[in-house]
Design a protein around this nucleic acid. Structure first.
Length: 111
DNA sequence: TGAGTGACTGTAA
DNA sequence: CTTACAGCCACTC
């Protein structure tokens, strides 16, 4: 079946909603969890148009940088993470490796 | 129709 | 962790 970017976006939203509070995830981890590791860019593209019920502020790039903060406006993204217990320095997650959450880990019993 | 753009990543050093 | 290079693909003009 052909690749459906619309469906891909829906899958991205569904998976991002699974990210636990106080944790963050990366575009690549999401893409990999959706079995599309090379389409990490589309994850960011999808989150740009995500509905309000998607915790997109929990998604950062591989360096732990809040690259999407400019789309939230002001320091909204940093504040949201802080409220969840994620320390952020300027525009980077503090001890990123420690707060990183892999969706694949949570899928161990899926399917 | 084609060049430019972007909330990116893996690998190597 | 950072920096540099190459690959990636939907969207815009």
């Amino acid at each position: 079946m052909p690749f459906d970017s619309q469906q891909f976006s829906e899958d991205v939203y569904a998976l991002v909603r699974l990210v636990p509070r106080g944790r963050v995830c990366t575009y690549g981890a999401v893409a990999k969890a959706l079995l599309e590791p090379s389409r990490s860019r589309l994850v960011g593209w999808a989150l740009n148009r995500c509905p309000d019920d998607v915790p997109a502020h929990r998604i950062v790039n591989r360096n732990g940088v809040l690259t999407g903060r400019q789309f939230f406006g002001g320091d909204t993204m940093r504040v949201l993470l802080k409220e969840e217990g994620v320390a952020v320095k300027e525009h980077k997650v503090v001890d990123f490796k420690n707060v990183f959450w892999s969706p694949i880990e949570d899928m161990s019993c899926e399917d």
